[in-house]
Amino acid sequence: MTDASFTELVRLRDDEASDAPAVTVDSFADQSNAGAVRIEPGDDARLLLPHLDHVTRVEVNFPSFTDGRGYSAAQILREAGYTGEVRAVGDVAVDQLGYMRRCGFDAFQPEVPMNEADVEAAFTRWENVYQKTSDGRVPIWALRHGEADG
């Protein structure tokens, strides 16, 4: 058995990762040149919508993986047309990656490094999906009624 390799940051984007420090949603309104912002579970992601054109990275923090507010936050950003990085940080593990990606997350920085083989499995396991979400995958109901899988 080979040694498993572990990763601290998974990024599904081709652009270079920005290392701008993330500021809070509250302070972001006052310093709109900040570039990166961090959403806590209780923050309203919609407050960021007027400023999205100069946000390069949104971090969505999961203090506990069982608090699912961040999934809605990411969906709201993507539904508003945001194309920058949306990174899940905190108590994130391989078993959450699939759903996070479906909600528009495209970077993952967990507290505990993840096994790369498990990460790969999480992204490839589900060949089809039942819902339309911001990841653009064609849901099963669309496939049934003639829409090609893009």
Binding site: F65, Y99, W126
Partner: peptide, 13 residues
């Protein structure tokens, strides 16, 4: 049932 199964946004309510 199909809509709610594996719903990615509503699995950590």
């Amino acid at each position: 049932r199909q809509w709610s199964s594996f719903h990615p946004e509503f699995s950590y309510l």
